[in-house]
Structures are given as C-alpha cells and as structure tokens.
Design a binder for these strands. Structure first.
Lengths: 279, 279
DNA sequence: TGTGATTGATACCCTGGAGATATGAGTGAC
DNA sequence: GTCACTCATATCTCCAGGGTATCAATCACA
C-alpha cells in the first residue's frame, strides 16, 4: 500500500465532517467531482469503505470514524512539524506562551521574572488566546508552552498543575445578594452568564464588566482575577459549592527543548513558593 | 504558507538521516536532482534553511533537527491513521497484541483467558516482535496493545506496569559458577551476552540455549522465562544486583476502543491477582 | 404516479508539477 | 594540477489532480 498523502486526509476530513460532498468541496475550494473521485481512490487504496453514500445522504463507516479521528491528529502533527521547524529557524526562536487572559492564577509576572534568570531562558512572547484555544495551539505548533485551566483536552500534551483557586462570582454592587458574604450555586440559579447573552461569541472583559455592573449577567472568575480587577460598581463573593479552578502549565508531549523545560520548572517553582490561594 | 505534504516530509527525513542527497535519493527510489529541487522548494516554502550543504558534506540546521524529529512523528501519525482505518474496516477487526516472546511476566495465558469473558472482548491476534519493536508498532497502527518490558520509548503511548520480576542468569550446567546459589554482576564480568556474538542480529531462542549450553554466552532472562524453559544442561541463578524487569501493558495514547480498554483492565486485574514474583 | 430538485458518480479534457537525463560547478584528495 | 565526488541547474516528458458537462438515483410534493 502506498503512503497516505496529506491532501487525501484533508479531503477525507472535510467530507467526513460535512457529510456532504458539495459543501466539503466548497470548503476545500474545489469542484465536487474530483473530490468524489479522490475519496473513491482513497477507499480503493486502503481497501476499506469509509463512507456510505446514498444520493441523498452520506454517513461514516466505523473505519471512516477511525480515519476521521486519527486523520485529524495526523494533520495536526504534520502542521506542527512545519510550524516548529519554521519557528526554530527564526533568528531568535523565543518561547511562545499562550494562555487565556488572567487565567494564570496570578503567577505569570513572577514566573516570567524568575524565568528570565534561568540559564536556558530565551525571550518569551505571550499570546492571549480565547477559552479552549491553548491545547490546539500546542498541538499544531503555534505555541511552545501554555497556562490552562484544567480540565482540558490533553491528547499529545503533558501538564503539571500549578495552583488551585476558589471560584467567585461577580455581582453588581446594587445586587441584593451582596448582603451575603458567601454564596452557593442555588442562590444564583437562573442568572444568565456571559455565554448566555453573547450567542456563543466571546465577550471582551470590558463588555463583561459592563453587563455585570448593569446586573444583566453574573460571571464566575477565579480568585486571582478578582484581585486584579477590583472595581467600584462590582462586588465579588466566593461561591462555596463551585468547583475550584486548577491552573496547569502544559506543553507538547514531544517537546524536548531546554527552554520549555526551564519554563515548566520555573512555573512549578513559583507555584510552590507562592502561598496557596485556596480556601 | 501552503500545507506540508507527506512526500515532502519523507524526502526531507531521508536526506536528514542520510546526510547525503545521492544515498537518500537511492533509498527513495528516485534520482538525485528532483530530490535536491524538492528540498530546496521545501526550504523556500517554510522560509527556513534546513540543511547546510557544501559540495562535500551535508549537515542539519537547528530547524532541520526539529523538522527531522517532528517530521518522523508526523509520518508515524499519518501511517497510523491509514493502518487503523484499514484495520477497523476489516470484517472482524480483532485486537492486535504485540510482545517480545516470553516477556509477558508469565501472565499472558491468564490474561487471554480472562479477557475472552469480557463483554467488550474481540478476537485477539498475538504478534511476537523483536526487542524494541512494540512501541513503534503501537505508534504506527500495526498493533492495538502491547506487553513491553520497561523502560521503553513511550512517546504517544500510555502504559500501566503489571509485574516486576527479578533477573536471572542462564549458565551451562557445567559452569563452575553453578556452585553458588545466587550471583552478582561482578561474578559474570567479562562474559559475553547474546548481543556480543550475534553482531546485532537477533538470535533465535534455540540458538541462545545452544550457546548457553556450550558456555559461549550467558543470558539474563527474567524469572517467568526460567520457569517456562527448564532444560537439562542449563541452570538458572538469580543475579541479585541486576535491576528487576518490569512488564507493562501499553497502548496508543489516542486509543479509545472499548476492546483495548477491556484488555488493559483485564491485564491489570490478572497482575493484581497473581502473587507477585518479586523477591 | 409523475415531475422537479438535490446530490453523488461518470466521462472527458487540460494543465502544472514531479520525476528523468544531461550537464555544470565547487571542493577536497593526492 | 587533476581527478573524483557531490550537489545544483536546465530542460523535457508525462501523468495525476483538477475543471466542465452530464448522467443517474432518490426524495418531496402535487
């Protein structure tokens, strides 16, 4: 059997995700007939049926499901190889750190300060991504190391927990619940969160604060975020029965660079030095 | 930047491993000029120099080293996707177990017997590979689960230790050392092992026994192997200061199939039921 | 039941790129 | 200085991959 090609995987993944040759072809920027032919050739090459087509609908066989899952992983691996090589070829490779803004357990400034003094240290560029973008960025080579709230999709990724923080709720200062020093989830039942009003689109921090201050939404930040964003008009209260958030340092399992290793070591050192914020 | 292709990675890996365009081209079954051009195009596409060529020698840049490592992993991932899809498409997929013959801690018969009674059980085909072939087979989709002596290259692989066995030495019955009930490494210093006489080529078990019986080599099997292969002419003695061998059950980290999960669970169950052989 | 809309498959053509051959050019060995 | 070695360049050929036109099967609906 000759080798699978990236192009074949891209095509198959598109069809398998769309379950529609026309839309898949459009997404791939090509015409439908060559796509149909490519999939047929792929099936012949593997000697396995991947899709069940009727003229009205397309569905995956078990083999197709396997190829979709492993094919996506393989495409990630290929993209990662290219990106990492590109990055390693830069004059000053640096270390690309990605995190969701503020979700660093308050440790980032100290981690960066201590890291700079490491022997293996290289310049760090910080990229603030949205929720859930950290792990994919590590997988496909856009980032070298990340700070992520656990749990997350850790396929191909190693991580070490750094710190655990209790969850708070941000309320309008005018909210009657402010009278209680601590709250429980039941107190907040029915209150919409940021996701409920944005229609899935991520909200800016300023937008969130605005809506909280107006009493339109409630928001559940971890402790370190409340410390950074003390504002008049907004009051934070601990929510006792909400699971605490664990922040971990994460890196691609394959990573072997001393710069990454030093960063991880530094992060763990800082986390162990700083008094735990749990409680 | 357009996507990397598997062909490009294969070409680069060949050159990076051979450090010689001519030999790499030969290995790839093609002529040298198109290979040179392909590598040049790859470098342009990534915008990174991967190789330093003089007319007399080729060497890797740091970016090239990264691409060699991650490129190999990516090629494995692509091959694994194809193989796993192929296998999943078989009428009866079955579970492909690979191990080095006898390196199962004596547990394999019981594991298989108990596994057959699992709900998620599927037929098991056992493949006896050579030393060090298990992990690559898991990575590139040729096997679903393995029994391996630790430590091994566990990139992309999850594992659970099952059992630990002390190491013995196999001696000719005529060997004077047989007089001692237990030995130490120092007693055996200078004695050649199987690897020393075969020139790297793996020896058949019968060959090993033959050479041991003749006193040409000594051989260090774990306990369970000595139990299976009691022979006149050969005597086993424990070597007290040789690290015991740990046998683990291993599977591709991405594996999600219930058949694999059931096998792992069964293996761990059996290992916990069987009295430990350490001591 | 017949008709049109939808959708994947087939037939056929055309172009770009992958590979081959021939050759050039730089470098180390002697 | 000459030769052997090795990678790069130039040029040609051919086919794989992509496009267009069209067919065929199925479902919706009158």
């Amino acid at each position: 059997m000759s080798d699978l090609e990236v192009r074949q995987l891209r095509y198959f993944v598109a069809v398998a995700e769309e379950l529609h040759f026309g839309r898949a072809a459009e997404r791939l920027g090509m015409a439908q007939p060559p796509l149909s032919r490519a999939i047929r050739d792929l099936e012949r090459q593997l000697g396995v049926q991947l899709l069940i087509r009727t003229t009205r609908q397309v569905s995956l066989t078990p083999a197709g499901e396997v190829l979709l899952r492993d094919g996506l992983a393989a495409l990630d691996a290929v993209a990662a190889a290219g990106r990492r090589a590109q990055h390693a070829g830069r004059d000053e490779p640096g270390l690309r750190l990605t995190l969701k803004a503020d979700y660093d357990g308050g440790l980032l400034p100290q981690i960066l300060a201590l890291y700079e003094q490491e022997d293996a240290a290289v310049p760090v560029s910080v990229h603030m991504g949205g929720r859930g973008e950290q792990a994919p960025a590590l997988r496909d080579g856009r980032a070298d190391v990340a700070l992520v709230p656990a749990p997350f999709d850790d396929r191909d990724i190693d991580f070490e927990p750094l710190t655990t923080e209790p969850c708070f709720v941000a309320l309008a200062a005018t909210d009657p619940l402010v009278a209680k020093e601590t709250l429980r989830q039941a107190d907040l039942a029915g209150r919409p969160g940021p996701g409920d009003v944005s229609g899935g689109r991520p909200l800016d921090l300023a937008q969130i604060f605005g809506l909280v201050e107006l009493g339109k939404i409630v928001w559940y930040p971890p402790l370190s975020v409340t410390r950074r964003h003390a504002r008049p008009g907004i009051v934070y209260r601990p929510v006792l029965d909400l699971d605490p958030i664990t922040i971990a340092v994460a890196w691609p399992r394959e990573a072997r660079s001393p710069a990454v290793a030093a960063f991880v070591r530094t992060a763990m050192t800082v986390a162990s030095l700083v008094p735990a914020t749990a409680g």
